[in-house]
Amino acid sequence: MEQLGIAEQLREKFTGSILGIITHRGQVTILVDRKDLFRICQVLKTDHKMTHLNCLCGVDNLKRKGAHLERFEVVYQFYSIDNRTSLRVKAQIPESDPVVDSITSLWTGANWLERETYDLLGIVFNNHPKLERILTAEDWEGYPLRKEYALRGDKEWKGLEELREKAVRLRKYDFYGAQIEQE
């Protein structure tokens, strides 16, 4: 199997950094150390013609059980258009130091995917040109995709609270700014 071949080649090249190779439903995942993640991606892109970055996302492992699992992981899915092979790369990230190298310099398109991962999970990407919130508001509190983040919160968004207060405050004026006489 071609994917496994690539995985083995990588294991030889990066001894110690490849923590494991998993095959599930015909898809091969290699677990890598986050220190070598950028270099592995670079090798995949240049040497193995994995020119297409399918997918990049983060996962919160809080409720999953597994010896090798840290709090977070980032998942990269690569595809080689020339060789028609795909490969998944995963790196574990501890909660105490949720940092991983950015691959924006390899794929410009990874920019927004990394921003999204940062926005929703709070994983920080080193050397990212503009790591800001993207889908949620700039002043959003918390990281929605973390498992401890409740689906339905117990209080309203504070912007809405402010808006409501403002509505109460401005209730005594009409549309054109004139004060409405109290009845």
Partner: peptide, 16 residues
Amino acid sequence: PYRMHIRSPSFIHIGA
């Protein structure tokens, strides 16, 4: 699903 990620083309296209 424990985690569902949607790789949506529009998101990446707007990023471009």
